[in-house]
Design a protein around this nucleic acid. Structure first.
Lengths: 243, 243
DNA sequence: GATTGTTTTTGACATAGATCAAGGACCCGC
DNA sequence: GCGGGTCCTTGATCTATGTCAAAAACAATC
């Protein structure tokens, strides 16, 4: 079992996600203010980060790793409603509990801010509020594409859409045969797509047998036929992006 | 056929949605600036307001009526991804085309702003950016509940969730037997819920036969048994709200 | 109030995906 | 390298929902 290391620390100006996170537009003096407010916290893969209903005492930015947001019905059915990558933000001003479960999908490091201090910062520095608006609107666009997928796509299209998203995100766009990391288990993919894990497995083998993809191992896919994958998504060819 | 009346006009300070729209937090001088920028435009029920891909030359707030946002796949499958009520906003800063179809579901009146002028206003007046952030985050919450519904609920639960949402929105909460307007056709409801219109119809008759609801006519439902409706949603009892 | 078109309901049937169950593959600690 | 756990695949079957088709209810126009 890997020990969680909480000793990670970088200067804001050298932060790897400096230009994409909520602080993207901050001037140096604003960064200095953030510098004094922040602390880092890490979680192992699989660990819960927050539970639905928890007091939202701090806001966070994902610095490294992947976290998922999910909601469950009483009987255990669960739907993933967000996938947080480095630079994504957790928390919302003006609400004091969180309304979904946040889980570390891989090892995750967060950059944390006390809520009240950060809320003050938001009202002081328009740069942060503007960037947060932009990020919220991007998430909303992603959520809407996701809704189309959940409501109207077949299992095969869902799988293809998911794989295509991974390719797009890893920026290998054109590189046929390149291997892409699959950061989620079959069950997590199922919760992402609104399917059962068995259906996920079957559709993946089906795409494999057709020669569209190949699985190096459980956690890595190679895309052998990008046009075929695109076709299978059900989107028009310069299709919509979820992330 | 009703003529579209474009002559609707109110002063901002007397506007019915003054305290809920993007301008909610504006001071009098900011309102005065909006006053000079705005124009009204109306659409009949069923008319398209914008098509996906259109140039986003203006932003708008819904003043009255209901509009829907939807996305379609190539073969015509369509999913509704938003339902705009009075005070809701159309358009997003920093993007110049719109990525879904906007349709007037009932007769609709919009309050319009030229995009460039409004974007300038956003960077000038933090009150507007802050309010827009709040509204975007609310929409995101709604979208996430909607995703759970699309991905994990049964047809019956979807219908119950939809009807419950209507009750909640019309603020009749406790009033058993009260009649609620059903602003969408069966097909639109189907596109909202990720179902076919036949399934919508069947589940509605099923709820009717069980005595949970009654249909006064096509466009009005009475909720006879609120606890039963709540049960049928699949949420826990003080359940989640979509709007 | 008959006519025509639209929307909704109902029925019969087909099927994608869920469910239940078993067997394999991989991982990790010893 | 062995044993126990977890994750993944595959198979057999069931069922909720989609599809296709027709009839019924309603709305609009003359």
């Amino acid at each position: 079992m890997n020990a969680v290391k909480d000793d990670f620390r970088v200067q804001c100006v050298e932060c790897p996600i400096r230009h994409r996170a909520v602080c993207a537009r901050c001037e140096v003096d604003e960064l200095n203010r953030l510098e004094t407010m922040k602390s880092y916290k890490s979680f192992e893969a699989g660990q819960p980060i927050m539970w639905r209903g928890d007091d939202l005492t701090a806001f966070s930015t994902v610095v490294s790793g992947i976290a998922s947001l999910s909601k469950s019905l009483d009987d255990g059915r669960t739907q993933m409603v967000g996938l947080l990558l480095p630079s994504d933000f957790i928390g919302r001003p003006g609400r004091n509990t969180i309304d979904f479960d946040v889980t570390a999908t891989t090892d995750v490091t967060l950059c944390r801010f006390e809520r009240t201090a950060f809320e003050a910062l938001i009202s002081d520095t328009p740069h942060i509020a503007q960037r947060m608006l932009e990020m919220a609107l991007d998430e909303l666009d992603a959520a809407r594409d996701w809704m189309v997928m959940l409501g109207r796509k077949t299992a095969r299209e869902k799988i293809a859409t998911f794989l295509e998203m991974l390719v797009r995100r890893s920026d290998l766009h054109a590189a046929t045969g390149a291997s892409v990391a699959l950061p989620l288990t079959r069950e997590e993919i199922a919760n992402f797509l609104g399917l059962t894990l068995e259906t996920v497995s079957r559709q993946m083998t089906s795409l494999r047998k057709e020669g569209v993809v190949a699985f190096d191992d459980r956690k890595n896919v190679s895309i052998l036929d990008i046009p075929a994958l695109n076709d299978a998504t059900g989107d028009d060819n310069d299709g919509d992006v979820i992330f």
